[in-house]
């Protein structure tokens, strides 16, 4: 246990000293704040638009039919989920790669393995150190969210909102760590470190960008800006009736999306933050129950990744060789 903590502590300090990660961290924080501010400005302009059209209607002596735009503050966090999807995955990949590549390149992995410690200490020490760093990063992001809300003013969060933020924080840490474990695995398994990094970024490209995009592109509702069904004036039951005729197509689209851990993270994150309107008034436990598969998928992949890392470290008898 002591050895594991020693390795974890060193790993954590090492990342903190890295300029690359300081830059990525600052970038993520700036993007978070910007995304919230932009979403707020968009919302405020919607409200002022509504108010001016309401005033116009009232001046004409007509009764307004459209409901006032409702502010669900957590809706403003859609961009944060999007950024974590992309930048978070890159952070995870770089952390996993550097955690092993540095040790191999400097030959310190040989030294580590010649010390009276087990491979388990090395794997779990490194995972723990990086987990702490990722957790701190996401906690910073959450703090930035709250600071941005405070800066904007007039936004009050309920206790449930805080729970929801906490849930997405935990989910985000697990999501980033999935990519960490993947990159960690490949960096041990591959003799060539550049190959390991190339495979990681190919996987990132496919699972973070391509697969979710294919799913989105295939979505009939996305064919028209603002939503196909909305533009046709269809209500939900009508939309469901139409889509029922394309169940094969819809299942294929869903299957493609489900291949990507990013999509599982996105679906759960959007549901918890109420980005999809149907979740806005749903009780939090019901949202979690509705999203159990996506949540379990992210955590399941993380568990599989940790297992794979431990397995490859034990199986690869020359884990130190480059």
């Amino acid at each position: 246990m002591n050895n594991m903590l020693t390795i974890a502590k060193k790993e954590f300090q090492d990342i903190f000293r890295s300029r690359t990660f300081s830059i990525i961290l600052v970038l993520l924080l700036v993007l978070t704040a910007t995304s919230i501010l932009v979403s707020t400005l968009v919302f405020k302009s919607q409200v002022s638009q509504y108010e001016s059209s309401l005033a116009l209607l009232l001046s004409m002596g007509k009764t307004p039919t459209e409901a006032a735009p409702q502010l669900y503050p957590l809706n403003l966090l859609r961009g944060v989920v999007d950024y974590i999807e992309i930048i978070g995955a890159i952070i995870g990949i770089l952390l996993g790669y550097l955690s092993i590549a540095k040790e191999k390149n400097t030959r310190t992995m040989k030294l580590l393995l010649s010390k009276p410690i087990t491979k388990k200490d090395i794997v779990f020490g490194k995972i723990t150190g990086n987990f702490l760093f990722v957790s701190l990063t996401i906690v910073f992001v959450a703090a930035m969210i709250l600071a941005s809300f405070l800066a904007i003013g007039g936004i009050s969060l309920t206790a449930v909102d805080y729970y929801k933020i906490l849930a997405v924080v935990i989910l985000s840490i697990a999501y980033i760590m999935v990519f960490f474990t993947l990159s960690f695995f490949l960096s041990i398994q591959q003799k060539s470190l550049s190959n390991a990094l190339m495979i990681c970024f190919t996987i990132w490209l496919v699972f973070v960008l391509v697969l979710p995009q294919i799913g989105d592109t295939m979505d009939p509702d996305n064919q028209v800006p603002g939503g196909f069904f909305k533009s046709m004036g269809f209500d939900k039951p009508q939309e469901k009736a139409v889509m029922a005729k394309f169940s094969g197509y819809e299942n294929t689209r869903d299957f493609i999306e489900q291949l990507s851990v990013t999509k599982h993270y996105e679906r759960a994150g959007f549901a918890i933050f109420g980005v999809k309107t149907k979740y806005n008034d749903m009780p939090f436990p019901d949202i979690l129950a509705d999203q159990w598969f996506n949540i379990v998928s992210v955590f399941g992949l993380l568990a599989a990744g940790i297992f794979a890392d431990a397995f490859i470290m034990y199986r690869n008898r020359e884990a130190w060789s480059v």
Binding site: D14, S18, N105, T106, R107, T108, K110, L111, S114
Partner: peptide, 10 residues
């Protein structure tokens, strides 16, 4: 080991 470089940042 031969040519070990240790942890440069430390």
């Amino acid at each position: 080991p031969e040519n070990v470089r240790f942890y440069d940042s430390m």
